[in-house]
Simulated scan of single mutants.
Amino acid sequence: MQLIITPKGQVRCIYAEAIDLTTIGRMSISRGSFVEPNADGQWNVDLSPVQGPRLGPFTQRSAALQSEVDWLERHWISPSC
């Protein structure tokens, strides 16, 4: 689990239960994306909550979820962001 600490002292991460994040301080959790099926039974990733693109369609939900995490790690959670 990657934790990015901004110059303002905010911690940004892709939420997981690997550690108890409440030990860091007060939390504010917000959605980074939506992974939902389309009318054809394929999966789309909508990263608009973090000003990202739409990805897909994917035939498997697991592929859509992995694409979501990959994009967030490269473009949102990366220390250079």
Rank of each mutant, 00 (worst) to 15 (best):
H75I: 00
S28N: 13
G9R: 03
Q60L: 14
T59Y: 05
R31E: 12
G25F: 05
P53Y: 01
Q51N: 13
W76F: 08
W43V: 12
P53F: 00
E68M: 06
R74M: 08
T22S: 15
G9D: 07
V35E: 00
G32I: 00
V50T: 11
L55S: 03
T23M: 10
D40N: 14
Q42E: 14
M1H: 09
I14A: 00
G25N: 07
K8I: 14
C81D: 07
L55H: 01
S62P: 06
I14W: 04
T6R: 04
F34V: 15
T59W: 01
G9M: 09
K8G: 10
G25S: 06
W71T: 06
R74I: 04
G32V: 05
R31K: 14
A63Q: 06
S80N: 11
Q66C: 12
E68K: 02
L3M: 09
D40G: 12
I29S: 04
Q10K: 15
S30G: 15
T22E: 11
R31W: 03
L3W: 01
G25K: 08
V11M: 10
C13S: 14
I29M: 05
S62D: 09
A63K: 05
S48Q: 10
V45Y: 01
N44P: 04
S28V: 10
E17D: 14
P49S: 08
I5P: 03
C81V: 15
F58R: 03
E36S: 13
L3Q: 02
L72P: 01
P49K: 02
I24C: 13
S67Y: 04
L55Q: 06
D46M: 08
S78T: 11
A18Q: 13
P37E: 12
L72F: 03
W43L: 08
Q51H: 05
P37H: 12
K8Q: 13
W43M: 09
A63L: 02
F34G: 14
C81E: 10
I77C: 10
C13A: 15
M1K: 11
R31A: 13
C13Y: 07
R61G: 05
M27C: 13
P49C: 12
H75M: 12
V35R: 01
S78C: 14
G41N: 06
V69K: 06
G9C: 12
D70A: 12
S78R: 00
R61F: 05
E73G: 08
P57M: 10
S78P: 06
D40A: 15
H75K: 11
W43E: 00
L72G: 02
G56E: 03
A18I: 14
M1E: 07
A16I: 13
S48D: 11
Q10S: 14
Q60G: 02
S78M: 05
R54M: 13
T23E: 08
P57V: 08
M27A: 12
I14L: 06
Q60N: 09
F58S: 04
M1S: 11
A64V: 03
T23S: 10
V45C: 07
G56Q: 07
Q2S: 07
R61W: 00
A39C: 14
K8A: 14
E68W: 02
